[in-house]
Design a protein around this nucleic acid. Structure first.
Length: 868
RNA sequence: GCGGGCGUGGCGGAAUGGUAGACGCAACGGACUUAAAAUCCGUUGGGGGUAACUCCGUGAGGGUUCGAGUCCCUCCGCCCGCACCA
């Protein structure tokens, strides 16, 4: 190696190229219909304070795609902004007395600087924060349009109420049924709130998933299940001895076929019947109250022990009025789903069976598998506590006996549709969705004000568009519990826009999911005077590649899909599916360290010694606590700034892409980061040594092998990057670097090899440029180029050099590998059979036994099957 | 609890149903050096065998197939989401 080559210094090189890209405005996007567009978007960050490694991973992936597409000739849009409203800003205000706005903008300034140090190819001229009135005024205008279009509804719904802090709590602020700050038992309160009618699109949101072919199947499946379309029967039961006004109980069931297996009715604690029955039954009232204390989160309700309370009421079986079924209030029945009431068929539903066993209710099997042994197993299972939910034939079901469940469903439906109860059919077939309307009201300050006024005379009046935005007041205090907007002295007092009389503003703000449900469209025309400029959106939308965490698989993505539809309905957007391709990346995880007293220790304070892990400063022994998602609470965080400072952005980016497939969790390790750093130095040396060889000579046969490696690498990396297989692209680049290194070390190289080296190294630089853009620019300059990499087209593989003429195929006997042979590509069975059967390894394995089958998979494998 | 996913050497991982372990990390051996760092070369799934070679092996157990890490069933472990965190 040449002694004259200086070490690569990222501290000077990285800022140098960042400055170049900025001054050359390399990444500012303009509409240009002469070129194909490509819109790359990573989920924009919440400005929590500093970027974390998850951001580094997410934005590196997006940047690789953006730079790769750009080099490939696309007109790329790659914007960045801030999901800037949200609770942490208010928590900072409460805990530290900082104003949410100041806190947020300080965080944005810090994080912007950090992102810029990563060398991302972002169009910063399009940056915006959702807390800017210039952004949220359009959100307010669109909400008013949605109201006019009938997409908005006001209805009552439940919230978690902290009776001590007098505050509405988010589900995450409810810990074991208590408020996180006060520790008080949480209550449920009914509030009148705003809803977006996402359920009006249930069927379309479901059907359109089929069009999203470039979304991960698992995300589509999760959304499908979330929307939860079911076909069932809405069925009314006559109620005996119910409280006044309650003569019947309507339930929804997807299994009317199992009606003869009914053993109890279960209703939600919030069901009107439960409320009415509670009035004369203190014990029942107490039980319902206890159910409400579980909070509003479905997860909490469903993981809690299944409990029921017998109301003492009975319902008449719709197919046999003499059959009385007891009515329970159960803590796992949700008022939001169906009618908030079910009939329980324990034999064929696990939860019903658990419930029946707990309360000594009868269990009658009504579906039996047709296979005899399976039937016995099902019956035994039910007796032992395992419900049978498979197919079969109906038994113990009177006129349904012998039918398949599907036919029984139809028979019950048909019969009960014809039967009447109070001049109405007893039952009706009904398609039901699990999806609920989107509640968007939040009783918080740091969000977009909902642009309506409550007038005693006129009712709810939208704020006229000319008066938008409804600005968030800045002179608020957080020393009182509750929503600062509600107790601001003047803000809410206005005159009614319609009649002019005294009225009050809505003091709730929007769910921050609204902000992130249309930002992708705003990026097309971030300075437009309308929410979205139609021409710009027509050019840029949809997002060609959207990247973010799997944790957004349902809510954010579903809300965005709905929002595009709502915007289309109100003329703000011309399309309904905003994200053509979706990629969900994995998390960044790290080892955790604990002291013997159980305190978490930062990785930077942990050091490994021969005696094990110890605290770097105190020398205390440390316990490894397992590899977990980086989180502040467990302190297993690595600060990107530290990494970028010591290794450089390129190294951090490279490490984030190497080894681990992008969709999987990646573990950050110092050894891995150091390895990536060494590789940058190795590339730098190789490039400099190659540059010293001078200009390109003539290609000849001596350089052919390296040229083939280079061109095959071009083809492979192009393919891998097109499919977001970053880790594989990187493995290919290591192989190319190894091949280059081998030739560079060779004594007595000739001109043909030098020419091949030059070609291979130039390809290498261009191929790693999307991942390590600063190093690539510096290397490219060293190689004598004056046009920067960022303006250089992607290399093309020469088909003559990527073609493979000879292949190695494996030889198996009875599926076991016994040999391998090299044959010309495309060798046929006729050629292979005599060759293979003559192999010593094959004759030995066959041991004289006759060949019964000779399987040839062209260019891959030969499998000889013989009798054993 | 319900829904979704993942599981391969010491570690991260590779592998259109077709040679399991590419590539990287770590470790070990060697070269260079007064020495260290850096760099370069080599070895590295496990068992048996001097060797040719051979057997076992992709969380566990079954199945489909000429052939299974890959497809199907059951189980175990870990992770994500569950509607007011973002």
């Amino acid at each position: 190696m040449s002694a004259s080559i200086e070490r690569y210094n990222h501290r000077t090189v990285e800022p140098k190229w960042q400055a170049h890209w900025t001054s050359a405005r390399s990444f500012e996007a303009r509409e240009d219909t002469s070129r194909p567009k490509y819109y790359v978007l990573e989920m924009f960050p919440y400005p929590s304070g500093r970027i974390h490694m998850g951001h580094v991973r997410n934005y590196t992936m997006g940047d690789v795609i953006a730079r790769f597409r750009r080099a490939a000739g696309y007109n790329v849009l790659h914007p960045m902004g801030w999901d800037a409203f949200g609770m942490p800003a208010e928590n900072a205000a409460i805990e530290r007395g900082v104003h949410p706005k100041a806190w947020t903008y300080e965080n944005i300034a810090t994080m912007r600087k950090q992102l810029k140090s990563m060398g991302l190819s972002l169009d910063w001229s399009r940056e915006f924060a959702t807390c800017d009135p210039e952004y949220y005024r359009h959100e307010q205008a669109m909400f008013i349009d949605f109201m006019e279009k009938g997409l908005v509804e006001r209805k009552s719904s439940k919230v978690n109420w902290d009776p001590v802090d007098h505050t509405v709590l988010a589900n995450e602020q409810v810990i074991d049924g208590r408020g996180w700050r006060s520790g008080a038992l949480v209550e449920q309160r009914e509030l009148s709130q705003w809803f977006l009618k996402i359920t009006s699109c249930s069927q379309d949101l479901l059907d359109s998933l089929d069009r999203l072919g470039n979304w991960p199947e698992k995300v589509r499946l999760m959304q499908r299940n979330w929307i939860g379309r079911s076909e069932g029967l809405s069925l009314r039961w006559v109620l005996e001895g119910g409280p006044a006004g309650h003569t019947e109980l309507e339930i929804y069931t997807t299994r009317p076929d199992t009606l003869f297996g009914a053993s109890f009715m279960a209703i939600a604690a919030d069901h009107p019947l439960a409320r009415a029955a509670s009035e004369g039954n203190a014990e029942l009232a107490r039980f319902c109250e206890q159910c409400r204390r579980m909070g509003t989160s479905v997860a909490a309700i469903e993981t809690a022990e299944k409990l029921g309370f017998n109301t003492g009421l009975f319902a008449q079986h719709p197919l046999d009025p003499a059959w009385k079924v007891p009515v329970y209030v159960a803590n796992f029945i949700l008022m939001d789903y169906g009618t908030g009431a079910i009939f329980g068929c324990p034999a064929h539903d696990q939860r019903d069976l658990d419930f029946a066993r707990k309360y000594g209710l009868p269990v009658t099997q009504v579906v039996q598998p047709t296979d005899e042994s399976a039937a016995a197993a099902a019956a035994a299972g039910i007796a032992a506590g395992t419900a049978y939910d498979g197919d079969g034939v109906m038994i113990n079901s009177r006129f349904l006996d012998g039918l398949a469940p599907e036919a029984a469903f139809a028979a019950v439906a048909t019969r009960l549709e014809k039967a009447t109860l109070g001049n109405r059919p007893v039952a009706a077939r009904k398609v039901n969705f699990r999806l609920r309307d989107w509640g968007v009201s939040r009783q918080r300050y740091w969000g977009c004000p909902i642009p309506v006024v409550h007038c005693e005379t006129c009712g709810i009046v939208p704020v006229p568009k000319k008066d938008l935005p409804v600005r968030l007041p800045e002179d608020v205090s957080f020393d009182k519990p509750g929503n600062p907007l509600a107790h601001h002295p003047t803000w809410k007092h206005v005159n009614c826009p319609k009649c002019g009389s005294k009225a009050t503003r809505e003091t709730d703000t929007f769910d921050t999911f609204i902000d992130s449900s249309w930002y992708y469209a705003r990026f097309c025309s971030p300075h437009a005077d309308v929410p979205v400029d139609a021409a710009a959106a027509r050019y840029w939308m949809g997002v060609d590649q959207y990247i973010g965490g799997i944790e957004h698989a349902i809510l954010h993505l579903l809300y965005s899909r709905f929002y595009a539809r709502a915007m289309q309905a109100t003329g703000h957007l011309h399309m309904d599916e905003p994200f053509a391709s979706l990629f969900t990346q994995g998390m960044v995880v790290h080892e955790t360290y604990k002291t013997e007293t159980g305190e978490w220790v930062l990785p930077s304070d942990a050091s490994k010694t021969d005696a094990g892990w110890v605290h770097a400063r105190t020398g205390e022994p440390l316990i490894l606590g397992g590899i977990e998602k980086m989180s502040k609470s467990k302190k297993n965080v690595v600060d990107p700034d530290t990494i970028i400072e010591s290794y450089g952005a390129d190294t951090a980016r490279w490490f984030m892409l190497s080894d681990t497939p992008p969709e999987r969790d990646i573990e950050w390790t110092d050894a891995g980061a150091a390895g990536a750093w060494r590789f940058t130095q190795r590339l730098w040396r190789m490039v400099n040594e190659t540059a010293e060889l001078g200009g390109a000579g003539q290609h000849d046969a001596s350089g052919l092998a390296l040229r083939q490696v280079a061109h095959r690498t071009i083809a492979a990396v192009t393919d891998d990057l097109s499919n977001l297989r970053f880790n594989r692209a990187i493995a290919r680049l290591y192989e190319l670097a190894n091949a280059v290194g081998t030739v560079l070390q060779k004594q007595g190289r000739n001109g043909g090899e030098d020419a091949a080296l030059r070609e291979a190294v130039e390809a290498l630089v261009l191929l790693f440029a999307p991942m390590m853009p600063h190093l690539a620019e510096e290397c490219w300059q060293v190689l004598g180029h004056t046009v920067p990499v960022v303006d250089t087209p992607w290399p093309k593989a020469d088909p003559a050099l990527t073609a493979v003429n000879e292949v190695t195929i494996a030889i198996q006997v009875n599926g076991k590998r016994r040999d391998e042979i090299k044959v010309p590509k495309g060798a046929t069975r006729e050629v292979l059979e005599p060759m293979v059967l003559a192999l010593e390894s094959v004759t030995r394995a066959l041991d004289g036994k006759p060949v019964s089958k000779f399987i040839v998979v062209p260019d891959r494998i030969v499998n000889i099957v013989c009798a054993n």
